[in-house]
Amino acid sequence: MSVYLCVVVLTILTVCAYGGIPNKPTNVLLTSHNMNLVLRWDPPEGTANDTVYTTEYKSSVTIFRTGCVNISTLQCDFTPFNLSVYGKYTGRVWAVQRRERSMCAESNTITLDKDSFIDAPIVTLLSNGPTLEVIIKDPLFWISTLRDVYNSATYNITYWKKGQKEKARFISNVQQNRVVLNDLDPLTKYCVQAQINTDRNRNPSNTSDTVCESTTNEKESLWMAVVVVCVVLTVAVVLVVVTVVHWKSILKFFYPKDALPLEFIESLPATRSSPVYLAMRNSSPVVEKYDPISVSAVDELNLLEAAGSSCSKKHEDTERRKKKRLKNTD
């Protein structure tokens, strides 16, 4: 009996260790950051090295759809799966070990436009005399843009003299992304932060990094403007003077006097349309016929001798004709 009990216990332990159903994942959480959708979880207790996970997701108007399949990581990004910025989503995950699947562990439910965490905006400062221009750039969203999702989003701007944040001043519900701060002291360094507020999101954005810039004196700003204007006028005057002095050369460059003869220009269209030109353009190249000839050194000597003998005969005939003419005259 004791032997039988030992066998049963060993069998149960073996099945549990190697062939049992794995535990389901824990701490399953669905989150959104800048309008993405990511499911995260912790591995179950006693997880083997070869454990993989399969996930699904659904919206409030659809059934569960397949997400990541047989992955070894502890998160799945649903963002590429054609999401809606106004959708309400839920996720779930299974642990798979040696073809055995655990029970599913379901996540929380979130609505993207209401629960997504929004990054801080990017702030840039431009100094213009005793004023500062604040330029705000929205964070990039994974789906759509901030203004398309939250068309009535506004900014909260906080600014203070450097080292005096406890005396900070605030501007709320600013709709423009460029704001000029006028109530500043000249030749003073100011620091600025900004934050995004939306009409629907439960989570205000993070506060931007602190950016500092110094104002300048109004006279210095005017002086710089005068310098810029003087430089522009100087360059313009130089260009005008160069144009006036060298206007003939410039005209010759753009409108040269040398031109083709009028007769030649008038004959070009006629030449191109003439039958001779068209026939020459459309005709194929002429193939010349020839017979091969080979000449050796012996043949060259024979030819020279023959030519010499023929010449001597012609000379003798000519002398004979002259003698006959002389006899006839006598």
Rank of each mutant, 00 (worst) to 15 (best):
C191S: 08
F117D: 05
Y150I: 01
E100S: 13
Y190S: 13
T90V: 14
I265Q: 12
K24F: 06
R272Y: 07
R98V: 02
A194W: 05
T271L: 13
T188K: 12
V226F: 14
R281M: 11
S296D: 07
A120W: 01
C68Y: 09
F81A: 09
C311Q: 04
A48P: 01
S214C: 08
V235H: 13
A120P: 10
G163A: 07
C191L: 12
L74G: 02
A236F: 07
K24I: 06
M1N: 12
L125G: 02
T79F: 05
K314F: 07
D258G: 15
Y277Q: 14
T210R: 04
E56T: 02
S273G: 02
A105P: 10
D183L: 02
E106S: 12
D209K: 05
N34G: 10
E288H: 14
I196N: 00
S32R: 06
L29P: 04
T111D: 00
S127A: 15
N217W: 03
N156Q: 14
G19N: 00
I12T: 00
D299A: 10
V61P: 02
A48I: 01
L239Q: 15
P186C: 10
K323T: 06
G87W: 14
V123I: 09
E166K: 12
R202V: 01
L326T: 01
A225R: 15
V231T: 15
K323G: 05
Y255F: 12
T210H: 04
V295P: 01
S296T: 13
T14Y: 07
P292L: 12
K324R: 05
N206C: 08
C6T: 09
V228H: 15
N302P: 00
A95M: 10
C230W: 15
S283E: 11
V240W: 10
D199C: 02
L125F: 07
S107G: 13
C76V: 02
T207P: 00
R101E: 14
D138I: 00
Y89I: 11
N108P: 11
K137C: 08
